[in-house]
Amino acid sequence: MDWLGEHSSSVMKVARAYTLTSEECQDLAQEILLQAWQSLPKFEQKASAATWFYRVALHTAMNWHRKDKHRRSRQQPFVEVQALATATLDSAEQAQHRDTVEQLYKAIHQLPKTDAALVLLYLDELSYREMSEVLGISESNVGVKLNRAKKTLSALMEGQSHDS
């Protein structure tokens, strides 16, 4: 089960980016992990594990429907996500980062699904090549789309700063 731990943060980031409530977030995270577990035999190691995991996570998130909630509610969750306090950062910096992350999620929620995917990959510092592998588009196309998505994100973030 080590592979789950290795990619737990990316699962939660994708789940949170594509849902609005913590309940839905847990639900989607579990669905992503199940899909990843079921798809693991098909992993051909042509791409890196992180790239492959992102691909599964984003694909699941984009096809995730809230209307399936009833079906999933009958399935008892076997994955528990715990929030940990970070000891390396002082409280002020931690609070500032937390605020930034919250703003980022709010902005990402307003982006189209594919732009949200690009922004997630960018924030996780994936290279253009890795992004193109995840999304299945050319690197140059990644560059064009990402620039546009970043501008939209910045505008949304600026708007949120002014509002607050």
Binding site: M1, L4, G5, S8, S9, V11, M12, K13, A29, L33, Q76, P77, F78, V79, E80, V81, Q82, A83, L84, A85, T86, T88, L89, Q94, Q96, H97, T100, V101, Q103, L104, Y122, L123, D124, E125, K150, S154, M157, E158, S161
Partner: peptide, 26 residues
């Protein structure tokens, strides 16, 4: 706050803030 480097740095702090555990009984 909207500088890409700052955003990425803030974003990375999440990685150490979550832990996933599997309930073996379930």
């Amino acid at each position: 706050p909207t500088d890409p480097d700052n955003l990425q740095q803030a974003w990375q702090t999440q990685s150490s803030q979550t832990k996933i555990s599997i309930d073996a009984d379930v």
